[in-house]
């Protein structure tokens, strides 16, 4: 799956445009950044309802390519600027967390290995 597939599946709006042809392996949905940081292997997409700069920092440390803000939420410009500097695509989807994750899973994006 690629970033532009996610945009289609989630009816998402692009807030920061990075490489939309970037291949994505697995995703992670969480509002708890320490839980995201606990599973290091090849997560490419972060779905979250949290809006602070630490979301981008977490994605940066994990080498993630795409952040999706769920439930129509939009972070402030400072957060978007940070993502832009790091070449991370930022999307906003109207769907809630569970639905957004479910749609992506159904479309073939997996969650990676279990603990």
């Amino acid at each position: 799956m690629k970033v532009h597939d996610i945009i289609e599946v989630l009816d998402a709006e692009i807030l920061v445009e990075g490489d939309l042809d970037q291949e994505l392996k697995t995703a992670c949905g969480s509002d708890m950044m320490s839980d995201v940081l606990a599973f290091v292997k090849d997560q490419s997409v972060l779905l979250t309802g949290l809006l602070n700069p630490q979301v981008v920092r977490t994605a940066e440390m994990m080498d993630m390519h795409c952040i999706v803000f769920v439930r129509g939420k939009r972070p402030e410009q400072l957060v978007l600027n940070l993502a832009q500097q790091r070449d991370i695509t930022v999307l906003a989807t109207p769907y809630r967390m569970f639905t957004a994750c479910g749609k992506l899973y159904k479309a073939g994006l997996e969650g990676g290995t279990a603990i």
């Binding site: 509002d31 708890m32 950044m33 320490s34 839980d35 940081l37 606990a38 290091v40 979250t48 949290l50 602070n52 630490q54 979301v55 977490t58």
Partner: peptide, 16 residues
């Protein structure tokens, strides 16, 4: 509310 404070910090540091 900022996404931390779940008691995973030090365990994560030890892990990595």
């Amino acid at each position: 509310s900022l996404g931390f404070g779940a008691g995973m910090g030090l365990p994560n540091m030890k892990k990595y």
